Simulated assay, not measured.
Amino acid sequence: METLLYLTLLISGFYTPSSCLHQYHLISNNTNWTDAQSYCRAHYTDLATVDDMEDQNRLITSVSFDDSFWIGLKKGDSMKWHWSLADRRFYREGETEFRNWDTGTPQNGNCAFMSTAGLWNNTSCDDQHHFLCYDGKQGTNQTYVLIQENKAWIDAQSYCRQNHTDLVSVRNQTENTEIENKISLSGLPVWIGLFLDSWRWSDQSDSSFRNWLPGWPSTDQGYNCTLVYSSLYYDHYYYWYHSKWINHPCGLNYPFICYGPAVETTEKPQLKRHVVRMKMTPKDQHLNISDPAVQETILQDIRNKLKEQGLPADTKVTWKKQPDGKVFHKEEEGSPKKEEEEKKMKRMMTKREL
């Protein structure tokens, strides 16, 4: 019989308001996307626009871990190529439009890869390829990092954002030649950061940042509006929460997030805390979960997963001990508390499948 254990994480970090970033406002009223847009335009600036991972990290501090919220991304009628790395400061005039397509391309497929000859092709984003990350962090030895693992495009994007900066952008012919030389010895094509979609921001921003949950956006008819989806996720032997994007019919009712103009502030950094309750099913029933070394190993795994989902690097993740000094509590079969938790888990997993 499996042992079901419940544990509590304390996730905390400092957030300093900035005058150059969007100021997000959570509106808890449930409404459809169009009414949410009207409300945000009347009381703030517009439904939330998310320009990059920094925006995403700050936005999720304003939402609950167990709900979904409209943001301003909506499906349009025309398709356009974008770079995964959305920071406008990274590109000079005309560089977002540089292309080096092979003859007869682009054709079918929404994600781009580069051949060892330096020419670009497009294919299904679900295909598996090696990929090239761009690393713009100070102190790194490499600008272009070749990852010789086969991944789908969105998984490659997640890997690059977690470990470097993003999938590589190719801004001009000089960079195209550099990358061609980088991958030529591998003999295999690589994903680059170029993708095709028809999604548009409510405020008409040209931000290309997307943070879809793997397997999304859904291609179902009428799934034209975007939710920040904070959901319960099971990975190996524990449940945890993550915030990604999914698309849903615009007529459904959800709370929503507006943004307003940035406000100059001299506020001191504010400590943000989230307490997350999780369920763990140990594979090894003889595992001594009271051992501090075992607890630290599990905690480090959770830190890595949260980092992968875009949590700021300076965020602290620690165990929150109960009054009896324990971290893990076994729930007995048939206990009211366990039944309540299982019902909540079931609701969350059902919601994820919608």
Rank of each mutant, 00 (worst) to 15 (best):
T226W: 04
Q128N: 13
D155P: 00
Q221E: 14
W120N: 08
P214A: 11
Q173R: 06
C225P: 08
V168Q: 10
Y254S: 01
S186W: 01
T116N: 10
G193W: 01
Y238G: 00
Q142M: 11
C225R: 05
S169P: 13
G251K: 03
L213F: 12
D220E: 15
S184W: 00
D155L: 12
W212V: 02
S202Y: 01
Y239C: 07
N181P: 00
Y239L: 11
C225E: 03
N122E: 06
D235G: 04
V190A: 08
D155F: 05
N253Q: 12
L146D: 10
G139S: 04
V168K: 06
Q138W: 10
S231G: 15
G139E: 05
F209L: 04
I179Q: 02
D203F: 02
Q162G: 12
Y159N: 06
D166P: 03
S243M: 11
R161E: 15
T165N: 05
L119D: 11
H242L: 10
K151V: 01
Y238F: 14
Q204H: 13
D203C: 01
G222C: 09
E178C: 03
G139D: 09
N224D: 15
C160N: 11
P189D: 00
S184Q: 09
H242P: 00
V168H: 11
K244H: 10
N121E: 12
N121H: 15
N163S: 13
D155G: 04
S230T: 09
Q148S: 14
C125T: 01
S198H: 07
P255V: 02
Y241T: 07
L167A: 03
K182A: 11
D235V: 13
K137E: 08
V168E: 09
Y233Q: 12
S184T: 05
T177V: 14
A117C: 06
S230N: 12
V190F: 04
S208H: 09
R200A: 05
G222K: 07
I257Q: 05
R210P: 02
H236Q: 14
K137H: 13
A112E: 11
P255S: 03
H164F: 15
I154G: 00
R161P: 00
Q173E: 15
